[in-house]
Deep mutational scan, measured.
Amino acid sequence: DTINITLPDGKTLTLTVTPEFTVKELAEEIARRLGLSPEDIKDTHNGKTLDPSLTLAEYGITPGSTITLEIK
């Protein structure tokens, strides 16, 4: 299953994830792909900052969802 990550420059990154991924694991994968530190990444969905300890499923993030990435 894939989700879309909207980057600060407007580009989109597509990642393969499972509903059990935590937001922290997602940030780590994004950081790895972009050459950043996971601590520099802030993920938001529907205007809410995502708690790193919760899973994508707990936020109702499903395949095809879009998450907005902010760099701290």
Rank of each mutant, 00 (worst) to 15 (best):
T44V: 13
G47I: 10
L56H: 00
T14V: 13
I61W: 10
I61Y: 07
L36C: 12
D40V: 12
K24G: 15
T66M: 05
T6S: 13
E28A: 10
K72Y: 13
T16Q: 12
A57C: 07
F21P: 00
D9V: 02
I41G: 02
I67V: 09
G35W: 04
T49F: 13
A27R: 14
S53H: 10
K42W: 15
P8R: 09
T66G: 02
T2F: 13
G60S: 02
T49H: 12
R33D: 01
L56A: 01
L54K: 15
L7C: 08
S65D: 10
N4K: 10
T2P: 05
R32H: 07
E58A: 08
I41D: 01
P63S: 09
L54H: 08
L7F: 13
E58K: 03
N4E: 06
E70H: 13
S53Q: 10
V17D: 00
L13W: 11
P63I: 05
I71Q: 05
L54I: 08
L36I: 14
E29Y: 12
T2R: 08
T66Q: 05
T55R: 06
E28D: 10
A31F: 12
E29W: 14
T44F: 14
L26Y: 03
K42Y: 15
E25F: 05
L50W: 14
D43Q: 15
S53V: 05
I30W: 01
D9L: 04
T22P: 01
R32V: 05
H45D: 08
K42T: 13
T49V: 13
S53T: 11
L56Y: 01
D43K: 15
T66H: 07
P8Y: 07
V23H: 01
P8H: 08
L26R: 00
T68V: 14
P38Y: 14
P63F: 05
F21N: 06
L34A: 04
T12E: 04
P52G: 14
D1L: 15
L26H: 00
I3P: 02
P19T: 05
A31G: 07
T2D: 05
P63T: 08
L50S: 03
I67D: 00
G10F: 04
G35I: 02
T22L: 04
E25D: 14
A31M: 07
T14C: 08
T62G: 12
E39N: 12
L69T: 03
H45L: 14
V17Y: 14
L26E: 00
V23F: 15
K11E: 08
P38E: 06
L69F: 05
L13M: 11
T12Q: 08
I30C: 06
T49P: 12
G47T: 04
E39M: 15
V23G: 02
I41S: 02
D9W: 14
R32D: 03
T12H: 08
I67H: 03
P8A: 10
T6R: 15
T66N: 09
T44Y: 12
D43H: 15
Y59F: 09
L36P: 00
L56N: 00
I71P: 06
I5C: 04
D40L: 13
T66A: 04
G60W: 03
T12A: 06
P19W: 05
N4F: 14
L50I: 11
P8N: 09
T18N: 08
L15Q: 01
I30P: 00
P52S: 15
S65R: 02
S37G: 07
H45F: 15
V17F: 12
N46A: 08
R33N: 05
T66C: 13
E28T: 08
E70Y: 07
G64L: 02
E20S: 12
I67T: 02
L26I: 03
I67A: 01
T49C: 13
L13K: 01
T66Y: 05
L69N: 00
T2W: 14
I71L: 12
F21G: 04
L69H: 01
D1A: 15
K11M: 12
L13P: 00
T62K: 07
T6H: 14
Y59G: 04
D51N: 09
E70G: 09
I3E: 02
Y59C: 13
G47R: 04
A57G: 08
N46S: 13
R33G: 03
A31N: 03
G60L: 03
P38C: 15
P8L: 10
T18E: 04
V23Q: 00
K42C: 15
T22S: 04
L7M: 11
P63E: 06
L50V: 09
T55P: 06
L7Y: 04
N46D: 10
S65N: 05
S53Y: 08
T66R: 03
P8T: 10
L54R: 14
L34I: 06
K11S: 12
P63Q: 06
I30R: 00
G60Q: 03
T2A: 08
E70N: 09
K11L: 12
L34G: 01
I67F: 04
E20D: 12
G47K: 04
I71V: 09
K48R: 11
G47V: 05
N4L: 09
E28Q: 10
T6P: 02
I61N: 01
E20M: 12
D51P: 06
T44W: 14
G35T: 03
N46R: 06
T62F: 14
K24I: 04
D9M: 05
T44L: 15
S37H: 13
D9E: 05
A57M: 11
P52W: 14
T55H: 02
A57Y: 14
A31Y: 11
E25Y: 04
T62I: 12
T18H: 12
E39T: 14
T12L: 09
T2L: 08
G64Q: 03
G10S: 03
A27W: 15
E20P: 02
Y59A: 15
D51T: 04
E28S: 07
T62L: 13
P8I: 08
N4C: 07
T14M: 09
T62A: 08
P52D: 11
T49M: 09
T16H: 13
E58F: 09
T68H: 14
P38K: 07
D9A: 05
I71A: 05
K48I: 14
L7K: 02
E20N: 11
I61P: 01
D1E: 08
P38L: 13
G47D: 07
S37M: 10
L36K: 07
G10D: 03
I71K: 05
V17I: 14
K42G: 13
P63C: 06
I41T: 02
G35L: 05
S65I: 08
G47Q: 05
G10C: 10
D40R: 11
T55E: 01
T16A: 12
D1Q: 11
E28N: 08
E25N: 09
S53I: 04
E20W: 12
A57P: 02
T2E: 07
E20I: 08
L34P: 00
V23S: 01
I67G: 00
P19S: 06
Y59T: 07
Y59K: 02
N46M: 10
E25V: 03
P19C: 05
G10A: 03
L50D: 03
L34M: 08
S37C: 14
D1W: 15
G64E: 03
L7V: 04
R33V: 12
E58H: 11
I61K: 01
D9G: 13
L56D: 00
I30E: 00
I41K: 02
D43M: 15
A27Q: 13
E39S: 14
P52R: 08
D40P: 13
L34E: 01
K42S: 13
K11P: 04
I41V: 07
L15Y: 02
K11F: 13
P52A: 13
E58D: 14
T49Q: 10
G47W: 10
T62H: 11
T22W: 01
P63N: 09
R33F: 14
G60V: 01
L15G: 00
E70L: 11
I67M: 05
E58Q: 08
